[in-house]
C-alpha cells in the first residue's frame, strides 16, 4: 500500500519535471518506439530498453561505504525491487569511503554499459563530473541521500527529508530538555548537502529557544567509534552538557555508549537521524532519546523504481531543468512511539 503511494507520488514528480520537454513530450509511445528509442528531448545516446518486457537490464549501485546499515538497507531495497524480474541484474559496489575510488568505479560502470546507476556520492563536488559523464553516455543516474553538486542535472535524487528533519529533531529535543541547557552537535563528513542541511535545520530551530545554547560541533565522519571519542571529549569539556544531536544514528549510538560508560545514561538527551534498527533498540532501552526514522528499504526500492522507469522511458536528463527530487516521509521517533514501528520495517 505504502509503496503504491510512493510510486504515485513519484510519477507525479517525474511528470512535473518532464513537462519541461514541451511539445516533444506528448509523442505517443508507438511513435517513439518506431524511431528506435531516441529521446524526445534531443539526446541520442540513451538506448531505450523495457525492463518490464523482458529486456536484459543491469543496474549498478555504488555506495560510499557499503558496510553501513543505511547502505545495506538501500541495497536490500534495490535488490528486492528487482528480484521479481529475472532479466534485471543488480551489482553493488563499495567505494571504501573514497571519492577517488568512487570516480574510478563510475568510469568502470559507464564503460561496462550499465543501464542505470544508483549512486550515493562520497563527495558531491568530486562526483559531479562522473555523474554528468554517465548521463551524457545515456545512463540515468539516481542519487540516494547524498547528492552531487546541485548544478549537475541528473535523473533523480531520492532523499530522506533533511532540513525539516533537523527542525523536527530540534523541536522535540528542546521539549525533552525542558527548553534550556547546552547542546553539542556531532557532524558527519563535511560538505555533504544532506548532513549540512540537517545541521542547518537543527541550528535554525534551536535559535528560537533562548534557553538552549549550542556549545560545540565536531565531526565524527559518520563513524560510531569516532563518535565515542568525540562524545568523551564533549563530556570532559562540558560537564553540564544536556543534549547531543548526531547527524546520523551510528554516531548517536557511539555517543550513547560513551555517555553510558561515563555513568550518564539517560541524563543526556541524545538524538540521531536515519532510524536504523540498533538506534530504535537504543531508544527502547532509554540510551537514546530519539531519531528521525526513514524507511531505507523503501528508499532503495524507490530509487530502483525510478531507475527502471528511466531505463524504459524515452526521456533523459536533457528533458530536465532541475534534478527531480523524491523525498521520503520522515517519522519522529521517541520512546513513546518507537513501538509503532513494526519489526518488518526495521532495517
Amino acid at each position: 500500500m505504502k509503496k503504491r503511494v510512493i510510486a504515485l507520488m513519484l510519477t507525479a514528480v517525474m511528470a512535473l519535471s518532464l513537462a519541461a520537454c514541451g511539445g516533444g513530450a506528448t509523442t505517443t509511445r508507438e511513435d517513439t518506439a518506431a524511431s528506435s528509442g531516441t529521446a524526445a528531448g534531443g539526446s541520442s545516446n540513451k538506448v531505450k530498453v523495457d525492463p518490464y518486457a523482458g529486456d536484459e537490464v543491469k543496474i549498478a549501485y555504488i555506495a560510499h561505504d557499503i558496510g553501513t546499515p543505511n547502505n545495506q538497507g538501500w541495497k536490500e531495497g534495490i535488490e528486492r525491487e528487482c528480484a521479481s524480474w529475472s532479466n534485471i541484474k543488480v551489482d553493488s559496489y563499495g567505494a571504501e569511503e573514497s571519492a577517488e575510488t568512487q570516480v574510478q568505479i563510475m568510469t568502470d560502470c559507464i564503460n561496462q554499459g550499465y543501464n542505470a546507476i544508483i549512486l550515493q556520492c562520497s563527495d558531491g563536488t568530486a562526483l559531479a563530473p562522473s555523474v554528468k559523464q554517465a548521463e551524457e553516455a545515456g545512463i540515468p543516474v539516481i542519487t540516494v541521500n547524498l547528492d552531487c553538486s546541485s548544478d549537475t542535472i541528473h535523473s533523480a535524487l531520492v532523499m530522506a527529508v533533511d532540513y525539516d528533519a533537523g527542525r523536527m529533531a530540534a523541536d522535540k529535543m528542546a521539549e525533552q530538555m525542558g527548553g534550556s541547557g547546552k547542546i553539542a552537535i556531532i557532524q558527519g563528513v563535511p560538505g555533504l548537502e544532506r548532513t549540512d542541511n540537517l545541521e542547518k535545520g537543527f541550528r535554525d530551530t534551536i535559535a528560537n529557544y533562548s534557553g538552549i545554547e549550542i556549545v560545540d560541533a565536531q565531526s565524527a565522519s559518520f563513524q560510531k567509534d569516532t563518535a565515542m571519542t568525540v562524545m568523551n571529549s564533549f563530556l570532559q569539556s562540558y560537564p553540564d552538557l544536556k543534549g547531543v544531536f548526531a547527524i546520523n544514528d551510528a554516531m548517536a549510538e557511539g555517543a550513547a555508549l560513551a555517555a553510558q560508560s561515563a555513568n550518564k545514561k539517560g541524563q543526556i538527551v541524545i538524538w540521531g537521524a536515519d532510524g536504523e534498527k540498533d538506534a530504535l533498540a537504543m531508544i527502547e532501552s532509554g540510551d537514546m532519546a530519539g531519531t528521525i526514522y526513514t524507511n531505507s528499504w523503501d528508499e532503495g526500492s524507490t530509487a530502483a523504481k525510478i531507475a527502471l522507469l528511466m531505463i524504459g522511458s524515452e526521456y533523459d536528463y536533457t528533458c530536465l531543468t532541475a534534478t527531480p527530487k523524491v523525498i521520503m516521509e520522515p517519522i519522529v521517533v521517541t520512546k513513546e512511539n518507537v513501538g509503532t514501528i513494526a519489526e518488518e520495517d526495521r532495517w
Binding site: 571504501e96 569511503e97 573514497s98 571519492a99 577517488e100 570516480v103 562520497s122 563527495d123 563536488t125 568530486a126 559531479a128 563530473p129 563528513v189 563535511p190 560538505g191
Partner: peptide
C-alpha cells in the same frame, strides 16, 4: 580528474 579538492583525498592511499 575529480575537478575538486576535498580533505579526504589520498585517505589510506
Amino acid at each position: 580528474r575529480l575537478q575538486s579538492a576535498t580533505t579526504a583525498i589520498g585517505m589510506d592511499f
